[in-house]
Design a protein around this nucleic acid. Sequence first.
RNA 1: GCACCCUUAGCUCAGUCGGUUAGAGCGCACCGUUCACAUCGGUGAGGUCGCAGGUUCGAAUCCUGCAGGGUGCACCA
Length: 730
Amino acid sequence: MDDKFLKPYNPQACEDAIYERWETSGYFNPDVCVEKGVTKEDAEPYSIVLPPPNVTGVLHIGHAAMLAIEDILVRYHRMNGYRTLWIPGTDHAAIATQARVEKDLQKKEKKTRHDLGREEFLKRVETFAQESHNTIVHQVRKMGSSLDWGREAFTLDETRQQAVHEAFKRFYELGLIVRGDRIVNWDPKGQTVISDDEIVYEERKTMFYTFRYDKDFPIAISTTRPETKVGDTAVAVHPDDKRYKEYIGKEFDAVFCDVPIHVKVIADNSVDPEFGTGALGVTPAHSVADADMAERHGLPTVPVINEYARMTVDGHLKDMKVNAARETIVGWLRTERLMEHEEEITQNVSTAERTGAIIEPLPKLQWFVAVNKPFVLEHSNIPSIESGSTTTLKEIMRASVAPGAIHITPERFEKTYYHWIDNLRDWCISRQIWYGHRIPVWYKGDKLYVGTTAPQGEKWEQDPDTLDTWFSSGLWTFSTLGWPEDTSDLRTYHPTSVLETGYDILFFWIARMILMSGALVGDIPFRDVYMHGLVRDEKGRKMSKSIGNTMDPLDLIAKYGADATRLSLIIGAAAGNDIKLSEQRVKGYKNFSNKLWNISRFVLQYADEVKLDLKTPLHSDDEKLVDELCELAQDVTADLEGFRLYLAGEKLYHYTWHRFADEILEESKAVLAGKDETAKKQRVRLLYDMLVIQLKLLHPFIPFVTEEIWSALPKKDADLLMIARWPDTK
RNA sequence: GCACCCUUAGCUCAGUCGGUUAGAGCGCACCGUUCACAUCGGUGAGGUCGCAGGUUCGAAUCCUGCAGGGUGCACCA
């Protein structure tokens, strides 16, 4: 027996060396596995792309959970002989990374990005991104992740750049990317457009004012934003509202707080006659709903607020911030005795997720992905969409999540997904930031060129904007496999097997990958979606820096080992359910590693003593014990296939500790201390076999300690446990 | 407003989509320990499965309603 068993298991002393052994073995790469006969060339492929962590800093505990889950799936399939590929990568996270660097710049040098200029600023961001990348990759290795590092990708590297340009070009040619002057969500603090999904609604108390534009105006209107009323071009009422019927179609002039306005009274079904006065001022330039109404009625659009959330009208409101303008107008309404009613209401205010600023809806010329526009999908493997048929991106998204295509675990998220699709509007993809994929469009006068490289000839100016970061991450399942080239990786590993991620990112990312893959590859991007929950603190609060309750995965690994950290994130975490993590839990699982260590010590000690011989027949009474373990193996296998990792982990934990150690080993002591040499040999062979099976079953969950024990086994069917055969469950 | 989820032991949660006396971990109480392991072992207490109905031979599990908690989407000016 190896002397190392005389001391308690010490993860810190073993883990790095074990990872090194795995990595140099080359088995993380399926091609090597085929080469060395670990798996067959025609074996079924199994692939996962790692959801790329943002290069904004360090990994958090949620990433650790993600890595643990995916590594379990990957190791399990590798041990089952699949050609198993898990691709690593990182995400440039355009807006988040840029914001992070800008913040540092402001803090340390008191400079803005404009002080440095585009080129110099981008260099800074790239340096930061590189450092951040290195930290992340180190952390990912620490978790024991069996990723094929030779295939590592970055959402902003050269290969992915090509994929992005190609994708943009194809979408443009299909008419799915359009440029338009539409109302967008403008973040006045970040000075960029953001998508609907980057908005967070916050409940706030606001005053709700009811007033008239001027003394002679026949209809009173209500609003929470009086400052936008200088941009009104209509008053809308319900067509059946008797109170206002006589005014429909009439036009009025008024001077509203020093600003001359011209409004027409229109009838529109979207107006709720019960709400407020039943009449609303229509501001086509600063409200999406009003813009829709303006389009229906052919109303003019009068912008009155600019990108800095200041008023653009003439008169004494000019250049005022919107809040100040609101106060001025409210004061004016009161003195003029135009105010009829004021009350406090709670309202959902749209704020930018990244900066916290209140969103200002503004009309801007931007690029959009048209989700409802029909186009011909040349080639399709998506059920219910035939090759060459006319469809829409929305239809692709809907049809892709269905029996025979993508299955989401837990299933309830499928409903949430459909619900979201139904409410989906065109996706604004241009951003006024510098870090990211520059939009592959060039302008010269009124000419426009869309291509993967700059056009020939002089004086072409590239669009200064960059793409929404989700545009490039949407391509992730196939851009990592070499698309748009027709690579063997792409043919073999796409669609990928599973996409595993947190449920908070279902719409941002999953829906977009389905959209991209459907339109560009004509196929689903993955067969299964597995969603894990949020890791919360022991009181159930979200972990956040401001509360100070974050847990650093590297700290936990340093204290308790990667295996314990992994188990604590798996057991008790059913799909889609949040998990409450406390350090005590992690500590408990460290004890488990040591328990397994001591079990091994006990068995190996006797294996030495009786000169273990695997040809020794089992005692007939003992077959029941083997059957019982096989039943467990069957159970665990079924749980892994069904994504019930928490159950599989718990069953193994329980069996090893409370059945195998507490009962089977305890009962064995009498035999092993006895004088019947044959019985002893039989019992040792039994225990050894059972230990080997347990090590294999436990390996995906706690790879380090099992591999470390494996290296000390006198007899085994593989050099490394990571490529040993999964126990035959029959 | 629309939709989804949750409510089971003191705490955190399972209960694999109807089937015998409802389980685990932690915690608690008591006992034990000359050795694989104190990073231990044994024993035990503890549950009207949120509430009220219904379906069924049988319900923690299915249906309806109610109460409390949470999440997503939309949003009325």
